[in-house]
């Protein structure tokens, strides 16, 4: 296809992606170098019958003019990246200098908002992804062995947790784990502890979010693996059987190697999706004990009456760098395959 025709076909979708994905990334990079204007204060004196009092107030007219002139705020260089709510370089230096052992350093770094969010995001990504793959595989193998007429309904119900909106799905679970809900009350009865609440401790909140993540994504892995199982060559399975392979050996040495490419596909999708975990934190009202990078950006943009664009943009840039690091191996592999083909 000549370049001209190619362009004629692709320009609308290219334009949409440049305007609303590429340029916003540049806009984020630009905004991250600026911070909000300082308040312009005016001191006014009120003189009454009992003497004069002076009060300080914000000069709204002057502020409005300033914002009009420089909507992005004033230039701050990389200052936003290194301040206490992002990379916190000074704080970390202070912590390392004044702490005695590694545990203390770790605990104190965990209290810095950016690192708290980063660690939760990474923990969520790298704990939920393998669990999803394992659980999805087990479900696929088991469902593949049940009678044909039951498969349809089983797949129907299995798809629900994945396709339902994350916020809605997490709310449904959140109401059930409430201490007055069925799971919350059930756990209290099970452990004989009427004060047990999954919302109370940070650790339990993390576990709840992980469980939600697995529940939400396992169906995806299940469906992909299930479709893969239909294409496993029966000849190989039969010859393995003739050679005396047991049920487990057939799965371990025939099915698993065959499905390995699918597992790496699921892993890629899951890494991308889990890294941006956000809605469940809102659905479970978990922000006090677990925040993610996406949640930090959201709460900056939602801050009070004036959004903290600079702070949100700096976190966004750091998140984008994280995404690219996460994707590097995949891009590298695709590039190798492509250059072999050409």
């Amino acid at each position: 296809m000549p370049h001209r025709t190619f362009l004629a076909f692709i320009w609308p979708s290219l334009l949409a992606m440049i305007l609303f994905i590429a340029i916003p990334i540049i806009s984020v990079a630009y905004q991250s170098l600026y911070i909000e204007h300082e308040q312009i204060l005016v001191t006014s004196e009120n003189c009454g019958p009992f003497g004069c009092t002076s009060s300080v107030s914000v000069d709204r007219a002057a502020m409005a003019r300033l914002v009009e002139e420089q909507p992005a705020g004033r230039y701050n260089g990389l200052g936003t990246y290194t301040n206490a709510s992002h990379l916190a370089t000074d704080e970390i230096a202070a912590i390392v200098a004044s702490s005695e052992n590694f545990n203390e350093i770790r605990n104190r770094i965990m209290n810095l908002p950016f690192y708290k969010a980063l660690i939760f995001t990474l923990a969520y990504t790298f704990i939920v992804t393998p669990l999803v793959i394992v659980l999805g595989f087990v479900i696929a193998v088991v469902v593949n062995s049940i009678p044909q007429m039951l498969k349809g309904p089983v797949i129907f119900f299995s798809l629900l947790p994945m396709l339902v909106t994350p916020l809605v799905g997490s709310l449904v679970l959140f109401w059930m784990i409430d201490s007055r809900g069925i799971i919350g009350a059930g756990l209290q009865a099970l452990f004989g502890d009427p004060t047990l609440s999954l919302k109370a401790s940070p650790m339990l909140t993390w576990v709840t979010l992980f469980v939600y993540g697995v529940w939400h994504s396992a169906p995806f892995a299940f469906v992909v693996f299930y479709a893969g199982l239909q294409t496993v060559p029966t000849d190989t399975l039969e010859s393995a059987m003739v050679d005396g392979a047991s049920r487990w050996e057939r799965i371990r040495f025939v099915v698993m190697p065959y499905l390995l490419p699918l597992a790496s596909f699921i892993a890629l999708m899951q890494l991308m999706d889990n890294f941006r975990i956000f809605e469940p934190i809102i659905g479970f009202s978990a922000a006090a004990s677990a925040t993610s990078l996406s949640y930090l950006i959201y709460s900056d943009l939602r801050a009070g009456n004036s959004p903290l664009f600079g702070s949100a943009a700096a976190t966004s840039m750091l998140t984008i760098i994280g995404v690219i690091i996460l994707l590097l191996p995949v891009l590298h592999r695709n590039w190798r395959e492509f250059s072999r083909k050409v």
């Binding site: 990334i25 905004q31 890294f275 941006r276 950006i297 943009a313 966004s316 998140t319 984008i320 995404v323």
Partner: peptide
């Protein structure tokens, strides 16, 4: 792979 909220902060 971009988290949507990073794009929104650009918009």
């Amino acid at each position: 792979a971009m988290p949507h909220v990073t794009l929104v902060s650009g918009y």
